[in-house]
Every structure is written in structure tokens, then in C-alpha cells.
């Protein structure tokens, strides 16, 4: 344990060191005119802009819009995906009809639906929610489906013999047993929902982080593009950590390291 800790500290130090080197080269080249700051900006200016975005409070309403679309899309998409998987695993007849259809629909590049959603649901948050939702739905469907299918029959039998009803089998065996699968899907789904919301904002919107990037790009404000990307990166890191924490708490019953 001790050795691993020491090692992970070293790894982190190396990471920071390498990052600093890249940033320094960028900064020095920008100052000496080796790279064109019009296209590449420069780290110190980006960080200054990043700080201003927060201190002026300018970024918060946009963050709120993007996160709202992300979370609503994530929630609805997850629920629908899990529900669809549950329904199809329960009803074999429906499974034979719908499963191939879902697999085929999954082949559509979801981003390509963006313009349609904006046409149908407008420039507001609705089209972004739908884009996030559709991206989340499929991954949650496939993971939940795999989870429900891999429940061990001996556990179901054992609980049935103890007098469990269908409802109890679902809540006490089926769902907890597929939770690791569902959470694996959820981890990927968080990123997809965020991406869906931002891409929707690129395509047509009046607010949101994606909107700022798009707008700044049109204005050739490369510094703003970079600083907003930095905001997105940090948000995504927080979301990832949140899911990790959730996984760790919910899956305490699994042996460490699996």
C-alpha cells in the first residue's frame, strides 16, 4: 500500500511536470512570436480570461443552461433506457420485435439528428435535452439489458423458494444484480449527455457553454474559446469524480479491485 502510494505521487508529479513543460513551450513561443497568438492565444492570457469569466459571473448562467440540459437528458435517457431494457427482458415477444429495431437505430450517428431536433423543438433547452437523451438512451439500454440478462438464475430461484413475489424478485434481485452494469453505462452516459448538450448548443442556441464557444469562434476570440473549453474540462472532471464516488458507495459489496 505504502509503495503504491509513493508511486502514485510520483506519477502525479510527472504529469504536472509534463503539463508545465508543454504550457511553458506554448507561452514562450507565443511571446517570441514563434506561434501566431491570433490562432493559438497563449496560456497566461487564457487563464486570465478563465478567471475573469468566473469573477464577473458571466459564465454561471451559461453553465447552468448546459448542466440543466445535461442532467435532464441524462436522467430521462437513463430512465427510458433502463425501462426499455427491463420491458424487453420481461416480455420475450416484444424483445423479438423491438431489440433489432433498437440495434438498427443505434447505428444512426446521433449528432446527425441535431438539426432535426432544433427544427422540431426550437433553439431553447428542449432540443439540447433531446440530443443528450437520445445519446444516453442507447448506452443505458444496452448496459441494463446485459445486466438483466446476466442475473444468476440460482439467486432468483433461491429467493423464489423463500416466497418472493415477482415484484420482490425485481426489486431485491434483478435490479441490485444489474446495478454494476447500469453504473458502467451511466459513467459513459454522463459524458455523452454533456457532449449532446454542447453539440446541440453549437447547432443553434442563445445560451450555454457550447454557445459561448461557437460565438467566440465566430468572433475570432480564440482566448475565449480556450478558456471556455477549460471550463468544460473542469466540469467534466467533477462529473466523473461524482460518478466514481457514486460507484464506490453503491458497489461496496464487490471485492476491491474489480
Amino acid at each position: 500500500m505504502h509503495i503504491i502510494n509513493k508511486q502514485s505521487i510520483m506519477i502525479n508529479l510527472w504529469r504536472i511536470f509534463l503539463l508545465l513543460i508543454v504550457l511553458s513551450i506554448w507561452e514562450i513561443s507565443a511571446r517570441n512570436g514563434l506561434v501566431d497568438t491570433f490562432f493559438l492565444s497563449q496560456p497566461t492570457v487564457i487563464i486570465k480570461d478563465f478567471v475573469t469569466l468566473f469573477f464577473s459571473g458571466e459564465i454561471f448562467p451559461h453553465m447552468k443552461v448546459t448542466l440543466q440540459a445535461t442532467f435532464i437528458g441524462l436522467g430521462l435517457g437513463s430512465l427510458l433506457g433502463i425501462a426499455a431494457a427491463f420491458f424487453l427482458v420481461k416480455y420475450k415477444f416484444a424483445e423479438r420485435i423491438f431489440d433489432p429495431i433498437i440495434v438498427a437505430l443505434h447505428g444512426i450517428p446521433k449528432i446527425a439528428l441535431g438539426p432535426l431536433f432544433i427544427l422540431w423543438f426550437g433553439l431553447g433547452i428542449k432540443s439540447k435535452i433531446f440530443l443528450a437523451l437520445i445519446a444516453v438512451f442507447f448506452i443505458m439500454y444496452f448496459n441494463a439489458y446485459g445486466g438483466f440478462k446476466s442475473v444468476e438464475p440460482r439467486l432468483i430461484n433461491a429467493v423464489r423458494l423463500m416466497g418472493a413475489s415477482q415484484f420482490h424478485i425485481t426489486t431485491k434481485v434483478l435490479l441490485p444484480s444489474s446495478l454494476p452494469w447500469i453504473l458502467t453505462g451511466f459513467r459513459a452516459a454522463v459524458g455523452l449527455a454533456f457532449l449532446g448538450a454542447i453539440i446541440g448548443e453549437f447547432m443553434g442556441s442563445t445560451a450555454g457553454l457550447g454557445y459561448i464557444v461557437q460565438y467566440a469562434g465566430h468572433m475570432y476570440n480564440i482566448t475565449r474559446v480556450f478558456s471556455t473549453i477549460l471550463v468544460m474540462t473542469f466540469l467534466m472532471m467533477f462529473l466523473n469524480e461524482g460518478v466514481k464516488l457514486l460507484e464506490k458507495n453503491v458497489l461496496r459489496w464487490r471485492p476491491q479491485g474489480s
Binding site: R154, A158, V173, P176
Partner: peptide, 10 residues
């Protein structure tokens, strides 16, 4: 039964 059928998440 022979195989242990405890629910692993409990």
C-alpha cells in the same frame, strides 16, 4: 442448495 445463494450485495 449446494451453491451458495446469498445475495452478494447484502
Amino acid at each position: 442448495s449446494q451453491t451458495d445463494s446469498l445475495l452478494p450485495w447484502r
